[in-house]
């Protein structure tokens, strides 16, 4: 029944507005505190980690740095890091933001470097072979293909930072963790549970939203290739979708069809060792197959 009470506590409109004080949890203010410091910290972490991660992934050097960073972040207790920096720097938002940035960097770094590194080497070689500069390869080939893992790293960073703000509540920082700290001090378990529910819902909502974004930015090889092919065909003077052709590798058929059209319009691309296009077009399908023209 404590669960029902906690839900009622959250749904109480009076608990949302106003300034935090005796008896007023001021959920909106706490939400603002959590999101405010999180946005700033995530932004700083992204600005530091993404270029570094892309550099590591692109050059293949310094991989150890990324792995080391995520191991250190895993091993260091958040609570300890917070207390030490607060004691060294002073009790204000700066040391908390520093800890949030420090803990937010490793997942973003890992996402950026893993994403870029996972790009097919052949694709990069092809980009280089058609004359792209290194910068163009990074911006136009690697980043789009790494987008999904980049967003994955971002997702982990955001959740790491928000989770850390709840711990920071123990050290004179507001945020949602405050309900757990205060609830414990006042033996008010309803408030504790309400705080836990609020944090959980916030994290799940943000995670869900970013999961959708991650899916949207994932490179879809086939549809993109299909779009490009259609565009080319249209540029070649073909209108409308290509008629369905049943089984077989349609791409090959398509490119030969393009050849046929080009020849119709007087282009001469091949050395002439192909069968005469106009004659072939008049043949029946089995006959075309026989001479190897698909």
């Amino acid at each position: 029944m404590i669960f029902v009470q906690a839900i009622a506590w959250i749904l109480d409109g009076g608990h949302w507005v106003g300034r935090a004080g005796a008896g007023n949890p001021a959920i909106l203010q706490r939400l603002g505190e959590t999101l405010g410091i999180s946005v700033i910290s995530v932004a700083i972490a992204v600005v530091i980690a993404v270029p570094l991660g892309v550099l590591i992934g692109h050059t293949g050097r310094g991989r150890l740095v990324a792995i080391l960073a995520s191991n250190v972040a895993r091993a260091l207790p958040t609570l300890g890091l917070l207390s030490i920096l607060l004691l060294l720097i002073g009790i204000n938002a700066v040391p908390i933001a520093i800890v949030l940035v420090l803990l937010g960097i490793p997942p973003m770094l890992a996402g950026a470097y893993a994403g870029v590194e996972a790009v097919n080497r052949d694709t990069i070689d092809a980009a280089r072979a058609v004359g792209m500069t290194e910068w163009q390869i990074v911006v136009r080939v690697e980043l789009p293909l790494a987008a999904s893992l980049l967003v994955g790293g971002f997702r982990a960073t955001v959740l790491q930072v928000i989770a850390t703000t709840t711990v920071a509540s123990a050290f004179a920082f507001g945020g949602f963790g405050i309900y757990l700290i205060n609830g414990l001090a006042q033996n008010d378990f309803v408030q504790m549970l309400a705080g836990a529910i609020l944090v959980t819902v916030l994290c799940l909502l943000i995670d869900g939203a970013l999961a959708v974004v991650q899916r949207l930015v994932a490179p879809r090889a086939f549809p993109a290739a299909r779009r490009i092919r259609l565009r080319r065909r249209r540029a070649a003077g073909h209108s409308g979708p290509r008629p369905s052709r049943g089984r077989g590798p349609s791409r090959k058929v398509c490119s030969h069809e393009e050849d046929l059209q080009r020849r119709d319009r007087g282009h001469r691309r091949d050395g002439g060792d192909r069968p005469d296009a106009r004659r072939v077009r008049q043949l029946e399908e089995p006959e075309r197959r026989r001479i190897g023209w698909r």
Binding site: L159, I197, T200
Partner: peptide
């Protein structure tokens, strides 16, 4: 995804 402090109560 659930922060530790919240899971401890949940």
């Amino acid at each position: 995804t659930i922060p530790a402090i919240a899971l401890l109560v949940l």
